[in-house]
Amino acid sequence: MTAYWLCFILFLTGLYGVITRRNLVKIAISLSVMEFSCFLFLALTGYREGGVAPIVDVAEPVQTYVDPLPQAMVLTAIVIGLATTAMLMAVIIRIYRKYGTFDIREIKNLRG
């Protein structure tokens, strides 16, 4: 249960960063921290005590396997996370080239 709680605290850390930081790069970092905590939570729900990695040995098939379903979902989510992060960084670098700052308050005050 400790692992679930720490995972949740990691999520809260990322959420705090998203809400309070004013720097766009810091916000992107906080978003990926939240993403990572979700991946960790899903992988934790799939874990089974004494289980082996879900690769079947045909010669000796009767074993306890770790749940493959959350792993497959996290695999999809990781790749989509990369896509969103790359998109976010592209937007951020465009904003920096136009306004010369990462600070969201200054960007809001400037006329664009």
Partner: peptide, 12 residues
């Protein structure tokens, strides 16, 4: 996970 939290706090 504790290390991850520390790293996240430092990153922020």
């Amino acid at each position: 996970a504790g290390f991850m939290i520390l790293g996240a706090i430092y990153a922020i």
